[in-house]
Design a binder for these strands. Structure first.
Lengths: 130, 130
DNA sequence: CAGAATCCTCGCCGATACTG
DNA sequence: CAGTATCGGCGAGGATTCTG
């Protein structure tokens, strides 16, 4: 049983919706970004995502997929075959999001070196001096 | 004492830089987005940020500011007056990021209702049925 | 293949109190 | 005004094991 707070959920629907900070936390969360970007080209299977996202554990992949599905960003399609086959696709809502997320990962890729250097500089400055 | 793992930091600088997932986790983290967006128009003071970011505690504001400064996204300027005055500004690197983050918050704003509804729907579907 | 279940650890994060 | 210090709960998240 997930047992999410039903009262809180009802309040959200009747009022103004989900708090922005919570939306962003889900949608731009540590693993969600990679998953959405990886799922954008088309239906993707569980194991493909596991390889694509890099560093994610099976557990966190499952949990994040469930949360994204609950938020209406992913659709989950089960094919009752042996072995089982499950495909994840972005909803229209998530497709709209995809471009921004791509920009984000592109930015991260371009600046990862600069960030590493900034950190090292900060660390020496704040260990030697007070 | 921050005591970050110096060996790991050195490895990052010499090799390919900071892992993307970690960059994204910092830059698009729960509070970082709001802070960067709020600081984009120009130098912002601590208390302005505290009011702007909505829901953030003084502690998390401080910690997130420090982390963003360490990553080279914010510059912190202290004016030795009484009472003290501290201003935070985005670095060029962070300015580049700002546009993407704005798109993100805009998306979140537009879809918060839909997300709340999706959740409610998911919850009833997965409590009644198996 | 695509998970569910369990255990355990670590860091986020709020609450509170104190300071230059 | 702009922090720092400390405590404590709770959830993120890895490792491992089991399953239809």
């Amino acid at each position: 049983m997930p047992e999410h707070d039903a009262a809180a959920t009802a309040r959200m629907v009747e009022q103004e919706g989900c708090p922005i900070v919570e939306v962003l936390d889900h949608v731009a969360g540590k693993w969600a970004i990679g998953i959405i970007v990886a799922a954008a080209p088309g239906p993707v299977r569980f194991t493909e995502l596991e390889r694509a996202v890099d560093g994610i554990s099976r557990r966190m992949l499952t949990l994040t997929l469930r949360r994204l599905e609950r938020d209406g960003l992913l659709t989950r399609t089960v094919y009752p075959t042996v072995p089982p086959k499950v495909e994840y696709s972005l909803t229209d809502m998530a497709c709209e999001l995809h471009a921004s997320l791509l920009e984000l990962t592109s930015w991260a890729e371009r600046h990862r070196m600069a960030i590493a250097r900034a950190r090292a500089a900060y660390d020496v400055a704040h260990s030697a001096a007070g």
